[in-house]
């Protein structure tokens, strides 16, 4: 739900103030719930454990698994911690938090991943139903618009009822061009038109919405292939940025989604939405580990500027720092 739609103007005005600070604050705020939970839990462990015994390992496992990191990745991380405690002869168990942080950073990498600055570019948003593709497009379009880029949004979700209208509202709100056909039309044809329009209007950024599709529906996945074929053929000069949108609330199925979508598209990165709830989004750690897909943007709130660059250090710090 986009609560800010009623306060768009305010948030647009105040957006540029203290930008750098607000990003971290927002992230911290968005993840504060997680942070409290984790530190509380870890501290309670330190209070009651004197050695890295089975019971403590169980507790660590619980913390990691309930963050949706997944069984396998959790076990791996814990094995590494066990090794290090033994090898480095660590007796001060309060250091466990630091070690946990280091291990998670070593998986997701220290590098800040964000959208590529190559123009003209075409962004295609893909993902299963209800993860927040259309809303994220609104937020990304706003980002580029603020940077003074010429943006076109494309309503290529021709399937879901009123998906086109939803994007239309967004395009009016941030004042960018919208290319649309009728509901039930051919998504590839809409994108074809959008590319022609982008060429003639010399647009910097084209952002395509697509219908949510469950990754196990073969026919719908084939439809996506057709979209990419049209883009490759008609717009080779544009930089392609294919973003997979994942919902932080989703559990282990996110990996199956990432794997299936990766098979048919050269995904550049992940947009992880809905991190402002109590879901931990730990699954992105497993996805980086298994599929080497970096998170580029995270959704930490409902305001128009609440789609932030993913900064691994901040992310992990926000998870563990008091």
């Amino acid at each position: 739900m986009d609560k800010f739609c009623k306060e768009t103007e305010n948030s647009c005005d105040s957006y540029n103030k203290d930008k750098k600070q607000s990003i971290y604050q927002k992230l911290k705020h968005g993840l504060s719930k997680t942070r409290e939970d984790l530190s509380k839990k870890i501290n309670s462990i330190f209070g009651s454990f004197k050695a890295l015994d089975d019971e403590m390992i169980d507790e660590l496992e619980e913390i990691l698994i309930t963050s949706d990191i997944g069984v396998e990745t959790s076990i791996q991380i814990i094995e590494k911690i066990k090794d290090r405690v033994k090898k480095e002869n660590i007796t001060d168990l309060s250091k466990i938090t630091e070690i946990l942080k280091e291990e998670i950073i070593s998986i997701i990498g220290e590098k800040v991943n964000t959208l590529e600055n190559s123009f003209p570019k075409i962004i295609v948003m893909i993902g299963v139903n209800g993860v927040g593709k259309t809303t994220s497009i609104g937020k990304i379009a706003y980002k580029y618009k603020e940077q003074g880029k010429k943006v076109i949004v494309v309503a290529a979700d021709t399937f879901r009822a009123a998906a086109i209208e939803q994007l239309e509202v967004w395009s009016r709100r941030i004042n960018v061009d919208l290319i649309k056909h009728q509901e039930g039309g051919d998504p590839a044809a809409v994108i074809y038109d959008a590319i022609q329009s982008a060429k003639s209007k010399k647009a910097d950024v084209v952002i395509c919405d697509t219908a949510g599709r469950l990754h196990n529906k073969k026919n719908l996945m084939e439809e996506l292939k057709k979209i990419f074929k049209v883009i490759n053929r008609e717009y080779p000069e544009a930089f392609q940025e294919i973003l997979l949108v994942l919902d932080a609330t989703t559990g282990q199925n996110s990996i199956a989604q990432a794997r299936a979508f990766k098979e048919i598209a050269d995904i550049n990165g992940i947009v992880l939405t809905k991190l402002d709830g109590t879901a931990k989004g730990g699954i992105v750690i497993a996805i980086k580990e298994e599929l080497n897909l970096p998170v580029k943007l995270i959704g930490v709130g409902e305001n128009i500027d609440d789609l932030q660059d993913f900064e691994p250090k901040d992310f992990v710090n926000a998870l563990f720092i008091e």
Binding site: L214, Q252, N253
Partner: peptide
């Protein structure tokens, strides 16, 4: 497809509103 957080979500909604039941969606996925 909801992960570990399903517990927090359903518990909060239930505590606040006293839900009568649940509809589970997207079961046609894997």
């Amino acid at each position: 497809m909801t992960g570990q957080d399903a517990v927090n979500v359903s518990d909060s909604f239930n505590n606040k509103l006293g839900i009568g039941g649940v509809v589970l969606t997207k079961l046609d996925g894997d």
